[in-house]
Design a protein around this nucleic acid. Sequence first.
DNA 1: CATGAATGAGATTTCATTCAT
DNA 2: TATGAATGAAATCTCATTCAT
Lengths: 220, 220, 220, 220
Amino acid sequence: MKRNSKLIPSMIKDQRLIAERRRQIIEGAVRLFVKKGFHKTTTREIARECGLSIGTMYEYIQSKEDVLYLVCEDIHSDLEKRLLEVVIESDSGMESLRKGLKQLFRVMDEMRPLVLLIYQETKSLPNDKMKYVLSKEEEITGLFERILHKGMQDGTIGIDPSSIKLMAHNIMVMGQMWTFRHWSLGKHYDVQEYTDRQMALLLGEFTNGGKRDGNRSDST
Amino acid sequence: MKRNSKLIPSMIKDQRLIAERRRQIIEGAVRLFVKKGFHKTTTREIARECGLSIGTMYEYIQSKEDVLYLVCEDIHSDLEKRLLEVVIESDSGMESLRKGLKQLFRVMDEMRPLVLLIYQETKSLPNDKMKYVLSKEEEITGLFERILHKGMQDGTIGIDPSSIKLMAHNIMVMGQMWTFRHWSLGKHYDVQEYTDRQMALLLGEFTNGGKRDGNRSDST
Amino acid sequence: MKRNSKLIPSMIKDQRLIAERRRQIIEGAVRLFVKKGFHKTTTREIARECGLSIGTMYEYIQSKEDVLYLVCEDIHSDLEKRLLEVVIESDSGMESLRKGLKQLFRVMDEMRPLVLLIYQETKSLPNDKMKYVLSKEEEITGLFERILHKGMQDGTIGIDPSSIKLMAHNIMVMGQMWTFRHWSLGKHYDVQEYTDRQMALLLGEFTNGGKRDGNRSDST
Amino acid sequence: MKRNSKLIPSMIKDQRLIAERRRQIIEGAVRLFVKKGFHKTTTREIARECGLSIGTMYEYIQSKEDVLYLVCEDIHSDLEKRLLEVVIESDSGMESLRKGLKQLFRVMDEMRPLVLLIYQETKSLPNDKMKYVLSKEEEITGLFERILHKGMQDGTIGIDPSSIKLMAHNIMVMGQMWTFRHWSLGKHYDVQEYTDRQMALLLGEFTNGGKRDGNRSDST
DNA sequence: CATGAATGAGATTTCATTCAT
DNA sequence: TATGAATGAAATCTCATTCAT
């Protein structure tokens, strides 16, 4: 789980200390990144905010971009952990989906500024780090893929197998859009309404069919 | 239409010249922003790319952020124009929606890098400019709101009035996600498939009801 | 001759200005490098010393190492120019050698701190630049090779062809050692004595033979 | 012999330990200095290379420059020791010179990177340490002075007493130039050739006279 | 109107050295 | 004695913006 200790080298030997200090760094940096964005935050500000000297901070990272990576990685991990919490093996596909969606919207709301952050700043990562973060994103999407697949197999969710990937993405995006469109959505809906409506839309789709051909659009 | 000539002051009197030079600036800047992002592009590079001296460029803008604003504004305008093209007064709501969606996905695909750009860099605008750009975004969303509303009234689209705003957002986001999730979606679907499936999903919703209460989720 | 304008790119277009400012930079930097050495001189000090702002200075160079390169290149050019001054086509080999040596020792003495500088700091250049400077050094050595060769052919200098290269190096080193061993030599000899004695040594060698085998050492 | 234990204070009492640890330090540092130069080597790297912690290393030195001093001092000592090995009291001056020169060129070749190192980095020493190192250098030069003097007295070497100092320097420099001009000399001569030719040059001078006036150059 | 040289505040990063454990 | 985490001064370099020509 703490594979990142390998991905970002440190001058420090004590692994426990690395974890502790990096936590400080993440927490300080998140506050600033949320407030001012990655580019407008200076390394000195980060150091001050997390209570380390600039020199000490650089013992635990190699570059400012590393801080962004740590932050993104941490938020993604948290997200994933909280989604996994509600998925129970013994549930049917539909039950899992229902719980997963509810949790998704709840988490997205609770972590709104954080999710918005990774949403906006992932692109500022250096290429290799960005790939890793995107793969994490895909992994979380994969969670919903598996739920949909289970539902398809146990007959509780009506969906064409070739649509599973897309629907998983749709679900994730519906979760995220609460963060990145909140400037507008927030004026008209609260979380509860937003959750109810989006769940109705998605679950409706899955109970009405999903394999129906009659409605297929001719978008030629 | 060229309201921006007011928003961004220029040292130059000749309005025609302003329009011409700003077009140059936009075109040069877009190429660079798409390739390297806003922050990693320098004003010098922009000037070189658009064939102006740095001094001349600054006669037509006031800051680097102005360039970003011009670019965002231009892309949004283009987007809006192309969407408006297919909306005909005499069409029914459903017909408009169908055409609008098709066009939305087509345009999003054709302008993929550009839409991705505004998507990622709007947040780098200074507050007042960002508000203006977001209002433009809302305006475009409003287009779909009007279509849905028309369909609701002429009975061709089944939707609860309180869901119109949300569904319009959903539509816009489904369009945009083709750009910002293309790194993953592009591996599994081409535009055609993507368009077909997303239209089926949306149109299905609108033909099946939208006012249905039985399916309402209890996300308490 | 000003090929270096290509080797070190500048942000400035006006070639005359580049030459002028780089001269300022060279002159300021030389003073500081001679006094404190390359590593202990900061870029800000160089800028101040040559009367430019740090920003302006960096318009004419790309890195601190570029300054060192400019300095080395300039000193070498000067050295070469002053040696070439005294070499006249119509002179015999021996006459050229005599004049060349006298000039070599005079120049080495006059440029003592500068020659010491390139002597000590060339190794701090990045690899490609260092190669260029060393090739310049070889070029100057080549001047003495040509003189020796001419003397060999016109019979005024007795030397084995296979020794020409080595003797040219010996000559150059005897010139340079006046700079890098001056801390000791200077306590016992003045330039005049130094010149006389070293010339006697070298010219003696060339008049006594150079092809002699009887004295060959058996260093096995 | 271990006079340096006085020049460089240590926190440690046990003299044997000091000697042992400093040997480690010297050996590690030499490898790095030869490869990367003094300035580009960090104290941390030195500590790692010699198997000490940075803290421990600093118990045996006071500054990074101390390490350079230890290294220079060690190389000079080695050099001197190996030259002294071949000088036998009972030999004539000329015999000593011959053996001394042969050994000089052999040692310079074998210790080439090390000699080059002291050659290039001595100037980076703080003033007092540099003086000490230079005095060591002068001491070694003195060895050849003594040999020349002996030869002059026993009639085996023809040399003017006022030239002895200079010739000793010439000898040393001819030895060193094999290291600092090897980038060029090495392309044309191997050690054997180099040794033979330089010895012929020097010994020729000493057998032909050295007191001759006829060849004296008029470098006025 | 056009040009591009000049500016300097400010950003990131390094690294010799110390000192509590 | 040994360790290695902590420190922060200082170094290099960038780049948006201005303004004299």
